[in-house]
Design a protein around this nucleic acid. Sequence first.
RNA 1: GGCGACGUGGCCGAGUGGCUUAGGCGAGGGACUGCAAAUCCCUUUCACGGCGGUUCGAAUCCGCCCGUCGCCUCCA
Length: 492
Amino acid sequence: MSLRIHNTLSGKVEEFVPINPPRVLIYTCGVTVYDESHVGHGRSLVVFDTFRRFLEHLGYQVKFVRNFTDVDDKIINRAGKECTDFMTIANRYIAHYYEDMEAIRVKPADVEPRVTEHMQEIIEIIQKLVEIGVAYESEGDVYFSVKAFKDYGKLSKRSVEEMEAGARVEPSEKKRDPMDFALWKSAKAGEPWWDSPWGKGRPGWHTECVAMAFKHLGETIDIHGGGLDLVFPHHENEIAQAEAITGKPFARYWMHNGLVTVGGQKMSKSLGNYVTLKEIYTKYHPDILRLLVLFTHYRSPLDFSWEKMEETQRAYERLKDTITNIELLKKLSVVEEMRETPSIYARAKELEESFFASLSDDFNTPEALSHVFTLVGELNKIKNRAFEEKKIDRRELEAYEEVAKSLLDNLKKIFGLMEDLYPECEVERVVRKELEAGQVLDSKLVDILIEVRSLARQNKQYQIADLIRDRLTEAGIELEDTPAGTKWKKVR
RNA sequence: GGCGACGUGGCCGAGUGGCUUAGGCGAGGGACUGCAAAUCCCUUUCACGGCGGUUCGAAUCCGCCCGUCGCCUCCA
């Protein structure tokens, strides 16, 4: 099963062929650390985190680099407002970033370089660009000359002429051509600076990623990723610099995720329509955000709303219930009636193959999820029949458990979902853990109350039984009576 | 203004020349239950922005139109 991915460079879905299999080198543009990360950042991070997990599952040895931009105008501005230095701001938001990533289960990259730790490499690249004549110094600034690089515009599919027609480029006497972009900016008073052949200054936006990709991955990488909004100018400018120097393709595949919108409008700081990741995962289980992201193809826009979070939450609960229901099924009486192998094995295998086929087809996670939910339906049928008959065949029980476990494995490993679910699927233990840490109610007490309620029900003292149920519901503990006993879970 | 993307059933959201049902949420019906807000099952059997065209056949290809959005400035 070959993997096919969409390449922004060609505008087509192409077969993925790594340069040196099984190694795959991936670079994605990380965040600029000047403020909290929001759902827009979260989507990009989840998409590439999941894609990387999938590559690893396919047997590739992935080296994944995701950088921090820790010096730029916005960080400096923020520092000015808070009367502190840019490093304090950068360090603060890097720390917050790590908290967010841990919460939403985005695995750390193999290398997470910072711009400020690569000044030497950045300066060397700029020097080289000046030497070969595609960049020039002008009053302490250094600019890249877009007309000196013949392929300029190949990623974003526009020509220098077209862009000039757009006429929204900042005019500057320092530039030879309005489209030229800054590689090095001379330091203004009060700004951080580094020594360079052109005097004190700091790097422009795009050289950093080239420098860090070169250093940690090499001159040609397999996949370069980021948000769709980075195609121009950021990635275009990276290509210009890298390829002007090496004469080789900088990245073989360029992958861009679609943007998160709110009411159809791009989620952004400037519009003020953003929702921070912290807000999300303090209100919902972090898996809900991951599932929300995976429910939309990574290249399509994703319109965020709290209603959609609720919908996703419900779908998630159903998925989780199906997996954890194995514990309930085990409490039924187990019989030996079935002769043949349960058909769920074959069905699960078929659906798993479809699942991977979908992922291999330009990482179609929503289609992959449709197969997951089809399997959920099949497992629920078994469960329902068992509950109706108040018994289950041993073979079928084993089949349910094996299929549910293997489903859970895939969800954990590739989608990063339900990582806190025990392999034995003991949901009560998970909830118990939450309760113990989170103080709502002591889980032992819940058990005792359920026991008392069961007794009351046996004696048809329904007033007492319902009172216990109502009070527990108020306390956030939801009860469900099943033929296999009473199940409980914590609701938000 | 230039470049690009998109417009699918009540909502969200895949698909992309015919064959098989995407899937989720909601809704309706039912099962289970002492009851149930919980859970499960079934149904939601002429969906593909408009108008033309190509084709034996198009939601799927082509053209035009309408609408929405993105990039062109920092942005995941």
